[in-house]
Structure formats: structure tokens, C-alpha cells
């Protein structure tokens, strides 16, 4: 069972997405800010990270950069989640090292498709 780290400060979003991911057979780790996200990524080595970009303490871009800079976590795919459905946001997220990008509100089938592709799972 693949483990997904969900870094999201909004309680409702965190709750919804974690429940739906769990329902789809993933083990979900939760972090409420960027720093916690980086810490959990390092200590638990999830298979994939879902990273909100507007986060307290450490924002999603910086958290992603740190995850990607550390050799032990660099290989973990990161999907940026942002409410700004803008091309610049996508590019900024990619520049920070994210492997994928998705907008909120989450369209679960679409997000699941991206997760599966990055985890190398069959559709």
C-alpha cells in the first residue's frame, strides 16, 4: 500500500482529501505546515507528497525545494496543489521542483490519475 503525505493547512481540505485517498486504498500521512511536511518526508519517506502551496511556517514552494534538495527525499514525487488556477502558479511550482501540478478544488479522478502515474501504478 503506497503512502501519501498530504501537506495542507486547511482542516476541511485535509480531512476531505485524506478520507478520499484512504478510501482509494492509500495510507495517508498528514502535515499542517511546510516544516512539518519536510520533517515527515524525511522521517517517514512517503511514496508521494501532495503539497499545498500557501502554507504557514514554510510555504509549499520552499518546502518542495528542501525536499528536493535533500538526497534522501529528492526522489519522492511531489504534486503541487494550489487554488490559483494560473499558468504562472503551475510554472512556479514546477520551478520549485514539483513533479506535477493540480488545482483545487480537487477533481479526485484527475488527481488519482496523476498520483498513479507518478507511482507507476496501473490505471
Amino acid at each position: 500500500m503506497a503512502t501519501i503525505l498530504l501537506v495542507e493547512d486547511n482542516e476541511m481540505n485535509r480531512d476531505m482529501l485524506s478520507r478520499r485517498l484512504t478510501r482509494n486504498g492509500y495510507e495517508v500521512l498528514l502535515a499542517v505546515d511546510g516544516q512539518q511536511g519536510v520533517d515527515l518526508a524525511t522521517s517517514r519517506r512517503p511514496d508521494l507528497i501532495l503539497m499545498d502551496m500557501s502554507l504557514p511556517v514554510l510555504d509549499g514552494w520552499e518546502a518542495t525545494r528542501r525536499v528536493k534538495a535533500a538526497p534522501e527525499t529528492a526522489a519522492i514525487p511531489v504534486i503541487a496543489l494550489t487554488a490559483h488556477a494560473m499558468e504562472q502558479d503551475r510554472e512556479a511550482a514546477m520551478a520549485a521542483g514539483c513533479d506535477e501540478f493540480d488545482t483545487k478544488p480537487v477533481e479526485l479522478p484527475r488527481l488519482l490519475g496523476k498520483i498513479r502515474a507518478l507511482l507507476g501504478e496501473e490505471g
Partner: peptide
């Protein structure tokens, strides 16, 4: 628009969960 999206996110998401 940004502020409106956040609660909408919850409305759409939870209704999806409940529907499932």
C-alpha cells in the same frame, strides 16, 4: 474569488464524499 473558492472546495468535496 480566492476566498470564495475555499468554502466551495469544502462544499463540493464533502458532497462528493457523501455521494460516494
Amino acid at each position: 474569488s480566492h476566498e470564495l473558492r475555499t468554502p466551495l472546495n469544502a462544499i463540493i468535496g464533502y458532497s462528493e464524499i457523501l455521494s460516494e
